[in-house]
Every structure is written in C-alpha cells, then in structure tokens.
Amino acid sequence: MARSLVSISDLRDDEISHLVELSRIFFEVNSREIPKVPTLRGKTIATLFFENSTRTRLSFELAATRLAADVLTFTLSSSSVSKGESLRDTAETIESLGADLIVMRHFSAGSVQLVSSWLDIPLVNAGDGAHEHPTQALLDAVTIMDHFKTGKRLDGISVAIVGDVLHSRVARSNVQLLSRLGANVTLVGPPSLLPLDLSLWPVRISNCLEDVLPGCDVIYMLRIQSERFSESLMPSIGEFSRAFALNSERLEMASKGAIVMHPGPMIKGVEITAEAAESPRSLIRTQVRNGVGVRMAVLYWLLGANQGRLESIW
C-alpha cells in the first residue's frame, strides 16, 4: 500500500509545510509563458469520479498535464457503480492498466481509504462523501496565506465557515488544516446543518452570521444543495438565504480587510449573491487558479519527490 492523501490527518506538520513550498514553486511554473514541466513524464494519472464534478476533475487533469503525465479519465455514474464489488473491480482494473496514481471522488465517506487498502499505487482523495477533500483545504490555506502574507502559517487569522457544514467534506478538511496552521475557525449555520456532537472539533460555533462577521478575516461560504430543503433541514431556500447568505449588506458588516471564499460551484442567490461573489474582496477565482498549482504539488509529492526529480522543475 503506497502513501496516499486521503485525509488532512495523513499529513505531518512538516509535510504540510513542504506542500505549501512546492505549491508556490508550481504557481511560478503556471505563470510562465509555457506553463509545463517534464517532471512526471511517463507517469499515468487516472481520474476516477463516481460523482459529477467538472472543476475538480479538470483541475487535477490540468495539473497532471502540466507535469507532463498522461491522463486516463474514468467517469462513472453513481447508479452504474453502486456495489462494493464493482468498485473494487474498477479500481483494480485501473491499476492493472498501468496507472501510477488514482485521483478519486466517490459519494461514500471512507471509500478512498478503502480503495487505497486494495491497491499498491497512491490515491488522492478528490472528495469522499461528506468526509474530506484535502486538496481543497490545501489550496484554501495557501490562498489565505498568500493574501495575508502570513508565510507558511495562519496564526491569528479568524475564519468563519458558513452554511451546510453537516454535509461538507470541504468543511471537514478545512477545519483540520486551518486550525492546525494556527487559524481560529468558527462554524456558522443553523443547528440542523451542523453536526450534533462537535466535541472533537477545534472550533467555535455560532447560529448567527451577523454576530460573527465583524470579527473574521475570512468568510468562507459553503455550497448548499437543494435536497437539503426537501429533507426539511431548512424550510426553504428563502429562509436559509435570509439568515445565512452573504450579500453586500452583510459584507459591509465584516472588517475592512476581510476576504470572501467559496469552494464552488456557487449557487448565486442562495448562499451568496453575485455582488458578494464578484466583489473586489472575493478570492474565489484565485482559489480556482491556485487549485492547479496545489494539485501539481500533491501529484509531484506522491509520485516524483522521492525520485530526485525536483531539479527538473526548473
């Protein structure tokens, strides 16, 4: 079983630091006229997505391409692969085809860890159910660090993560990573969208966005999916937006330097208005751009870093 990235808890502090450094190197690569390095030439990276996703898959595939790796794309509907046995078959087939690494997204929490226990190649978790999405957290952390120029730490930065925390893998990875880097994290949402028992989470809790806004440096909005309303977790989109959407008025309540983030895809008018998303304080597009460099760093770290290939980046 090779080293994989399934959860933020898989990473030691020095490894997080190393990934931040690598990410910045790849940001520089991506700013070149020809943003491509031969680092992973000859390697094959497979993307295996059991859930619809465009941006995350494209981000990983672009990262792989810029490292000169070959890309194998598997997109499977959740209905065609719903049994464990075929999950195993699919994963083993991809390994047998010669993939050197699998980037995997699946609707079941724990699925990526399970697949990694079956295979000998590394896996990168691109989202497993409501569990984790570690590369999203890494790109968010680097984005915040670079904006506030806090080096490789986030000491003293206050982050509010707002909305449907209960179903959010982005929140679970971010809470772990940002708090380990020194940030103060507050979760904001209605009790029905927050986990019942948060005793193991290093966070503060609030049910009122307006209370939290004046004290935070980062307003991190989460996507809310429409099925949450049919499940009666909230009575209606309107009720949710009324209390928890980020709009221009609420943005005014935040401190002057506060920034707006969102992992995408946004549902404008539900959890965030177009004005807030497109305001000069929004780093949403920077997040998307940084995502490619951070994923290059992760792929490089898992496949190339131990093979003396660092110099080929330059």
């Binding site: 929490a109 724990g110 159910g129 409501a130 679970r172 019942l196 028992d197 948060l198 193991l200 989470w201």
Partner: peptide, 15 residues
Amino acid sequence: NEGAVSAVLGMKGIP
C-alpha cells in the same frame, strides 16, 4: 452512532 465520531467522519448517524 450519531455522535462525535460520525461528525468527524461525515457519516450519517443513528441518534
């Protein structure tokens, strides 16, 4: 079980 562990795992819990 719906509790501290399910909250961390992102698993749907039984209260």
